[in-house]
C-alpha cells in the first residue's frame, strides 16, 4: 500500500471510530448508528463485488444469493442444531466458496459475460429454494428467534458493540484486499482488465484468477450474511432477492467500481439514501434508483471517487485512489 492509501485507511478508520460518539448526543441523528451497522454489513459485500467488477471486469447478479447462503447457513445451524454462531460462520463461507467455484469454473471459462447470465439465473434459483424448502428455511414466512452473537458470555445486542464488530471486520477485509491487489495477483488482475488477450499471451492464467476473485466475493457476501443473521435475528427470502443484487451493484457503481474506497463510499451513501434521505420519495424511490443507476452508468462510469479525487487532489492522488495502485 502506498502512503496515501495508508493515510486514507487510517483517516477513514478514525472517522468510523468516532462516528458513534459524534451522533449519539443528538436525538435526531442517534439512529444513524443503526444505519451504519447495515452499511458496514453491506460494505463487506460491495468490497467483494468491487474486486470482481472493477478488477476482474466481471458482473455478478447473485451477490444477494451468496449473502443469503451465508445468512441461512448461520440461521439454520444455530437454531436447529444449537451450534455456536462463531463456529458456523466459516461453514457458510465455505459453502458459498464451493458454490461460487462450481458456478464460476464453467461460466468464466467462456469469454465475455456469461457470468452475468449464469449468476442471474442462479440468484433466482437460490431465492426459490429459500422459499420452497419450508422445513429447513421456514419458507416465505421466515425463520425467527435466531440467537445473537456472544463475546465472552455477553450477548452482542447493543448497536454500538455490533457497529464496532462489523466495521472491524470491514477494515480487516479491506486490508486483506489491498494486500492482494498489491501482490502479483493484483498486477495480473489489472493486466486482465486492461487487455485480456495480451495478459493471456504473457502467461497470466486469466480464467483461474477470475474464478478466484469470484469465490472471494462470494465468501465476503456469506460473511456479511452471517453478521446480518445474528443482528436482525430473523430471516426471510425477501432480503435476498434479485432487487438486492441490483442494489449492491448500484452501491459499487455509485462509489466507483475501480476503487475499494469507492465501494465503501458508495455503500455508506446508498444505504443512507435508501433508508433515510430517499424516504421522502416514497413510491418514487424505484424511479430514483433507476435514474441514479442510469446517470452514473452514462456520465460517471468511474463513480463518485473519481469526482472527489479530481476535485480535491490535483497531483498524484487520482491514480492511487481510482486504481488502487501505488
Amino acid at each position: 500500500m502506498s502512503r496515501k492509501d495508508w493515510g486514507i485507511f487510517l483517516g477513514t478508520m478514525l472517522l468510523i471510530g468516532v462516528f458513534p460518539w459524534l451522533v449519539k448526543p443528538f436525538k435526531a441523528v442517534s439512529h444513524y448508528i443503526d444505519i451504519m451497522v447495515f452499511a458496514g454489513i453491506f460494505t463487506l459485500i460491495s468490497i467483494g463485488l468491487s474486486m470482481l467488477m472493477g478488477y476482474a471486469g466481471q458482473i455478478s447478479m447473485a451477490q444477494a444469493a451468496f449473502f443469503g447462503i451465508g445468512a441461512y447457513t448461520s440461521g439454520i445451524l444455530t437454531t436447529r442444531f444449537g451450534l455456536n454462531p462463531w463456529l458456523v460462520m466459516p461453514v457458510g463461507m465455505l459453502l458459498a466458496a464451493v458454490v461460487a467455484w462450481l458456478l464460476g469454473i464453467p461460466a468464466l471459462r467462456l469469454k465475455g459475460h456469461y457470468l452475468a447470465m449464469a449468476t442471474l439465473g442462479f440468484g433466482v434459483i437460490v431465492h426459490i429454494v429459500l422459499s420452497e424448502e419450508v422445513n429447513w428455511t421456514g419458507g416465505p414466512s421466515g425463520m425467527a428467534d435466531i440467537p445473537s452473537l456472544t463475546i465472552a458470555g455477553t450477548r452482542l445486542t447493543s448497536e454500538i458493540a455490533y457497529y464496532y464488530l462489523v466495521w472491524a471486520a470491514v477494515f480487516l477485509v479491506l486490508l486483506f484486499c489491498f494486500l492482494v491487489l498489491h501482490s502479483r495477483v493484483g498486477r495480473a488482475l489489472r493486466a486482465i482488465h486492461e487487455e485480456q488477450t495480451a495478459a493471456e499471451a504473457m502467461g497470466v492464467p486469466t480464467a483461474r484468477l477470475k474464478v478466484q476473485v469470484f469465490v472471494l466475493s462470494a465468501v465476503l457476501a456469506a460473511l456479511a450474511g452471517s453478521f446480518y443473521t445474528h443482528y436482525v435475528t430473523f430471516l426471510n427470502p425477501g432480503s435476498f432477492n434479485l432487487m438486492w443484487s441490483i442494489r449492491f451493484m448500484l452501491m459499487v457503481m455509485v462509489g466507483g467500481m475501480q476503487s475499494l474506497w469507492g465501494a465503501l463510499l458508495g455503500t455508506v451513501l446508498m444505504t443512507f439514501v435508501g433508508n433515510e434521505w430517499l424516504q421522502v420519495f416514497a413510491d418514487f424511490e424505484i424511479l430514483a434508483y433507476g435514474a441514479i443507476l442510469l446517470v452514473v452508468a452514462l456520465f460517471l462510469p468511474r463513480g463518485l471517487v473519481s469526482l472527489i479525487s479530481q476535485g480535491f487532489g490535483s497531483r498524484k492522488v487520482r491514480p492511487s485512489l481510482a486504481d488502487g495502485s501505488s
Partner: peptide
C-alpha cells in the same frame, strides 16, 4: 448491461 437494467427499473417505476 447496467444501462439496460436501469431502463427496466425506470420503465417499471
Amino acid at each position: 448491461i447496467i444501462i439496460t437494467i436501469a431502463v427496466s427499473i425506470l420503465l417499471k417505476g
